[in-house]
């Protein structure tokens, strides 16, 4: 379990993290979402004791990172996959990390095998592709078989097969009862791989909850296709639905459930060809939530920013 307790971090003038307060529970994959520059990586670095908090604190299983006796056995992290000495081989990189926490050489070979990079274990890391580096980083995070895992943008640079692999991998770690905390700036990715989501923008907590809760907060619509749109529209409006004509014979209805629409169509004797609830995509929810909190937004050319 990771606990972020009223955490703030100031770098000279910028307040990168602003009074963040949340918990990451074991047994589920928790997504940590926010636009670029919103303070995700800073928060993760503070959890790992790399950066010092300006205010508040971050604890792992109740302890500060600095107080962990053998940290790799409790926490595994992948922050920046390319942050490895380019002249060192993958195996030596892992062996050094392992030695510092009294982890055996056999375990090094095990995680190399698991991450699928055994065949390049004796190659220098400098020649690795982003995907291979991510796999090396994941191998490093698993070295001490930790109960808490942090991954900062782990999907970057992975090919589709790798992405599928890593999603299943996160889920399996969570099923084993581990705490899995994964950051991303892509809501669509989190919608597929996370159960719980924490959304931040400009260092502040925007919202948190389950993926289902978040999508439920957005207004849903129902798409209806019928042979007699006029008759159905008047029936639906009578029941206080909001109806928009989307295309020939196709309507978008909000304010009524698909059940209610089906029943009123039955009462007025209109044939329905299609009746589909449209869930607002998590991506849309995310855009809506973080609209005011984008650090590096794009602006039309020629227009002045601010």
């Amino acid at each position: 379990m990771i606990k972020i307790d009223h955490l703030s971090k100031r770098y000279s003038k910028t307040l990168a993290v602003d009074d963040l307060d949340f918990e990451v529970r074991p047994g589920v994959v928790t997504g940590f979402l926010g636009p670029n520059g919103s303070g995700k990586s800073t928060t993760m670095r503070i959890v790992l004791g790399l950066d010092h908090a300006t205010k508040g604190r971050a604890t792992i299983n109740g302890k500060s990172y600095q107080d962990l006796k053998s940290p790799l056995h409790e926490v595994g992290a992948l922050l920046d996959a390319k942050a490895v000495h380019p002249g060192r081989t993958a195996r030596n990189h892992l062996r050094a990390l392992a030695a510092s926490n009294k982890i055996s050489k056999a375990r090094v070979d095990e995680v190399l095998e698991f991450a699928g990079i055994s065949s390049v274990a004796n190659k220098k890391v400098g020649g690795f592709s982003m995907g291979m580096s991510q796999r090396l980083g994941i191998a490093g995070a698993l070295l001490g078989d930790p109960g808490v895992l942090l991954f900062d943008e782990p999907v970057n640079g992975l090919d589709p097969e790798g992405i599928k692999w890593i999603r299943e991998f996160f889920q399996s770690l969570a099923k084993e009862g581990r705490t899995v905390f994964v950051s991303s700036h892509l809501m669509s990715e989190m919608a597929l791989s996370a159960d719980q989501i924490i959304v931040i923008g400009r260092g502040k907590l925007i919202t948190q909850g389950s993926v289902d809760d978040l999508t439920a907060t957005a207004k849903g619509t129902v798409y209806v296709r019928t042979s007699d749109p006029k008759k159905l529209i008047s029936a639906l409006v009578a029941e206080r639905g909001e109806v928009q004509e989307v295309n020939d014979n196709g309507l978008s209805v909000s304010g009524l459930s698909s059940d209610a629409i089906g029943e009123s169509a039955f009462r007025v004797g209109v044939v329905i060809h299609e009746l589909t609830p449209q869930r607002a995509s998590l991506e849309e929810v995310f855009m809506e939530l973080t609209a005011g909190a984008v650090e590096y937004g794009s602006h039309p050319m020629g227009a002045s920013s601010e």
Binding site: R45, L48, G49, L50, L79, D80, A83, V84, S100, N101
Partner: peptide
């Protein structure tokens, strides 16, 4: 950048 991995292993 390996200092981060190093310090995560030896805080």
């Amino acid at each position: 950048g390996s200092i981060r991995a190093t310090l995560a292993a030896v805080p």
